[in-house]
């Protein structure tokens, strides 16, 4: 946790500031921080980095009659992906083999056991290069890492 963030939270804990004031301050820190990872509307996806922190999924739907369509903006920490793979190590072997078989049936020759250590790092690093843009008349889907 950054010093500023912990200071604000301490001030809130001590009752020096209200919840709404703390929220505003935390927002301000988030906006000023360079690596906050927040996607600003209209901003183009950032250039690829060696170690991405977040996976962004954005769906922008064109609104009917010029109105605002449905927008979806999801930001998933890459660390969650790593944690998920580590959690996979506690999956029972029977269930693991079923998942592996299902993946193979779908044409994905990947095993949970393979996704550890260097291979996982390699996968995460290669995600930095990931950028998917699907542009149609009705909607625009963007998936990228930053």
């Amino acid at each position: 946790m950054s010093d500023d963030r912990s200071q604000i939270l301490n001030m809130l804990k001590e009752g020096k500031i209200s919840v709404s004031e703390a929220e505003e301050l935390l927002d301000a820190i988030g906006k000023s921080s360079d690596d906050s990872g927040v996607v600003k509307k209209g901003a183009s996806p950032p250039s690829s980095r060696k170690n991405p922190k977040y996976l962004h999924i954005k769906v922008e739907e064109a609104g009917k009659n010029g109105g605002k369509g449905e927008n979806v903006n999801i930001r998933v920490p890459i660390q969650l992906l790593r944690a998920g793979v580590k959690l996979a190590s506690v999956i029972p072997d029977k269930a693991k083999s079923k998942v592996d078989t299902a993946l193979k049936d779908k044409g994905l020759n990947i095993s949970f056991d393979d996704l550890e250590g260097d291979k996982l790092n390699e996968l995460v690093e290669s995600l930095a290069e990931l950028s998917i843009d699907i542009d149609s008349e009705d909607e625009k889907v963007t998936i990228f890492c930053e």
Partner: peptide, 27 residues
């Protein structure tokens, strides 16, 4: 053994939730 082994990964998963954002909006 499974439960004991899963303590650290579960804690890791909870910690790695920081920064997780979902924003779905329409008009």
């Amino acid at each position: 053994r499974k439960v004991v082994k899963s303590i650290v990964p579960v804690f890791g998963a909870i910690c790695s939730l920081r920064g997780f954002t979902i924003d779905i909006e329409d008009e």
